[in-house]
Simulated assay, not measured.
Amino acid sequence: MPLHVPPAPAPALRSVLAALGSPTAVREARTPSLRTAQGPATAELPLPVHVLDHITETTGPSRARLTGWRFLIRCGGHAVAAADTRLTPDGWAFCHFFEGPYVTSTERALRQAESLPGPYQPRLLSVPELYMLTLWLHGDCAADAATGHPAADDILVPLAPAPPGIAAYRPHRVAELLPVLTHRLTPAATLLA
């Protein structure tokens, strides 16, 4: 099934395109692959980046909050870098370019997700407490990509590098993976009490 990629806020896209068009921004970026890319670079596949906070708190459910939009920067048929934007008091603004394993693993997970049955809205979900990033496949394609919480039947695909003991690229229902993550983060003293 094709993925239903949500549209990014227009100011976020404009800020990334302006940065891509700026020789200074590209030259000063810590992304050798972007600086040495041959041919035009394009910003594609905008994904809202959500952070899952407080997954071990017993006072209420964990919360997912939007922290920005990430664009894959493609050149020559593949992703060479990514660009992050963030919301400022003046609106959406370019934050930085970067490269590394999450760029290629995001591209791979998106290709893999296209073969899953059913329509999904792709998002990124970060679990900072585990230094983990996942592709979040939200089942409601018409939902506002800037809001929401992972539903029990949504799918999470851990990106490489994944934390020890969690297989990268293996799709999990939220109802299956979230308890595993919560258990990994629960302090041993709490478990023994």
Rank of each mutant, 00 (worst) to 15 (best):
L87T: 04
A79D: 13
P89T: 04
S115E: 15
Y131P: 00
R173T: 01
A175S: 06
D90G: 10
L137A: 14
P163I: 11
H138F: 05
F98Q: 05
T67M: 07
Y169F: 10
V157F: 04
A81D: 00
P150L: 06
T85M: 07
V127C: 09
L177G: 13
R63T: 14
H172D: 00
F94S: 12
A113T: 07
Y102F: 02
A82L: 10
D90C: 02
A145N: 15
G139N: 12
A64S: 15
W92C: 14
E176A: 15
F71Y: 07
F71P: 03
T104Q: 13
F97T: 02
T104C: 04
L133H: 02
I155R: 10
H172A: 01
A113G: 11
I166D: 14
T88F: 09
R63S: 12
T85V: 09
V174Y: 00
V157L: 10
T106C: 04
A109F: 01
D144N: 14
L177W: 10
L72A: 06
T104M: 09
H172V: 00
R74A: 14
D153M: 11
I73Y: 05
A93Q: 15
L135M: 09
G139A: 14
D153N: 14
T104E: 15
A168C: 10
L133T: 02
R74W: 15
T104F: 06
G77L: 11
P101M: 09
A160S: 08
V174W: 00
F71G: 00
V174S: 00
P122H: 12
D90A: 12
P164D: 12
T106S: 11
R173H: 08
L177H: 12
L110S: 10
P150E: 08
M132C: 11
I166M: 05
L130Y: 07
G91V: 06
P89D: 07
E99H: 07
S105P: 03
E129L: 08
G76H: 09
L124N: 14
L177T: 12
P128R: 09
T106K: 04
L66M: 11
P101C: 08
R123W: 04
I166F: 13
A168R: 05
G91P: 08
T106P: 02
R86W: 12
R170H: 05
V127K: 05
D140E: 04
L66C: 10
L72T: 09
P128W: 03
L135D: 08
F94P: 08
L124Y: 13
